[in-house]
Design a protein around this nucleic acid. Sequence first.
DNA 1: TTGAAAGCGATACCAC
DNA 2: GTGGTATCGCTTTCAA
Lengths: 345, 345
Amino acid sequence: MPATIKEVAERAGVNPSTVSRVINEDPKLSIREETRNRILQAIEELQYRPNAVARSLRLKTTGTVGMIIPDITNPFFPEIIKGAESAASERELSLILCNTDENPEKERSYIELLTEKQVDGILLASAYIQDETVDLVTKRKIPYVLVNRTARNAVGASVRVDDVLGAQLAIQHLVALGHRRIAHISGLLYTETGLDRLEGYRRTLNQCQIPFLSEYMVEARFSERDGYLAMERLLALPDPPTGVFAANDLIALGAMSAIRDHGWSVPEDISVVGFNDTWLAEKVHPPLTSVKVPLYDMGYLAVESLARKILGETMPQDKIVLKPELMIRRSTDAATARTRVIREA
Amino acid sequence: MPATIKEVAERAGVNPSTVSRVINEDPKLSIREETRNRILQAIEELQYRPNAVARSLRLKTTGTVGMIIPDITNPFFPEIIKGAESAASERELSLILCNTDENPEKERSYIELLTEKQVDGILLASAYIQDETVDLVTKRKIPYVLVNRTARNAVGASVRVDDVLGAQLAIQHLVALGHRRIAHISGLLYTETGLDRLEGYRRTLNQCQIPFLSEYMVEARFSERDGYLAMERLLALPDPPTGVFAANDLIALGAMSAIRDHGWSVPEDISVVGFNDTWLAEKVHPPLTSVKVPLYDMGYLAVESLARKILGETMPQDKIVLKPELMIRRSTDAATARTRVIREA
DNA sequence: TTGAAAGCGATACCAC
DNA sequence: GTGGTATCGCTTTCAA
């Protein structure tokens, strides 16, 4: 049984309140050096550690925030979490990790749990999160920050990347390499990121005076398997694309497998660009050209923003939008004469 | 400001203690249906949620456990965390994530923080963790479970994989393919896993009547870079190995890069086996043969074990040892005549 | 310069 | 069947 402040006080021959003031370095406390030393000594001798639960009850703040993510094994998230954890640790906040497995029911019950635990705030990560969740958090009056998404009903802060710009970088790169038949395997179009990347794709084609063909655009979930299936549909077209912009690295990976399995190669026959530049991108073969998203920063800034919200500071930058960057690797190459011949064969 | 139990009691015209009993379904409570309904209605109307902080203070248990890991971006951990989170969520426990960046100081301060927060238990993951940390946790009398490691001074429970067996599977596979010159890039030898994998390597060579050559054994940290450097040393030997058993996938990855950069190929010239079978293994090129460790189970069982410890149940299985399994992929191949010729050239 | 006491929100023992 | 009340460990206002 660990020592309490009362025991420390007794041993030092003072009142608990005095011990409290010493521990918390109360500025408006003037105390005799000798008394303070007796207290510090008692703390040391009893190996006293304040009970944060009691403290929280009194202070109505827990120094804890919840982080809700759909799936930690998705390579997209660990970097974000690391950034968040890092910022949290700097501010002496604890992070409760909530993995929802993309299950709305689990998500709802986590919100309830976090409410009961009196967390100071919540990070809502990922596009899969339902708008109802945002409503629930709002109703519970818990400060929150959206990570990598926005929501129609969100009045809160958010940190995300400029998806339109990211898509633009990808398409411009492919166009610069001489590609004209450029397909897009989009993410789910009820997600903000999915929509924005599609928007960037269309807009850039337009700027480059390349017509948008609806058969070059296939919707998929953000998974390898769906990327594979989507690519198969593109390969089955009478006039398949020579360049593919995938809405994320997993989709790109699946697409590359499909291309290989159908006897073609990347980038000789088809160039592929991914999104997020997860760790995977540089490990796969061939290394994947991908739009790099500052994931660590996203997590870090989200916690910073949340911390400010918790402290009630007014937000100069309520919605933070980060800039993506294109990482060019070997999965993209010039559209050669050969590429065209093969395609037209 | 959320409603308290007192407000619920007032609205229902009863005493707070009665509300408490209803909420907690106190078995030895007999109550009129009508009174219960009044209470339930008041709860509903006020959107009452019990305050877990107050509850914890009274009950001296928080329903929270800490999980200490060195680096969440290491692909080894997310699966473990997912398993742990899953078991925790089933038991209505919350998981506080503590990423130490392999910094002993941060590790220590996290233990203090978790102590103050009165967590019910701690999961200590990874071999990098210092023995002093275990001492500290022991001193604070917090139940703990070691994940993927043991410690000299650990009296606690642990969940790990049979590293000796894993190494054995790897070496037997290489031997069966005809390899005789088999090197081992070991992990750090002050870690349990590093030592055990080395032990399995030596023992199996012995069983196969292959002499152990000290120049075929290079120590490395569990990183890609160190794998690369270690492999370079092996390649510089007058008689380089034809098979390499790396202590984990990252090391194997580095080794493969080194082999390629020096103009040789995997598996034609040199076969490579990794350990852990992280997601990476099947994504790299060529896909890596690796010893599969049931990471999800490790996390899951660790929490189960911890939960039992918290409940004070006696442990039938204090030290859980899981069985590894060899995943054979394209990074290993038969030692051909050609392999030998090239090596001897 | 320090002490006394109220109170945060819930639970549980003891009454009646 | 239900109410009263002490208590968990800490903070903070008010007194002295």
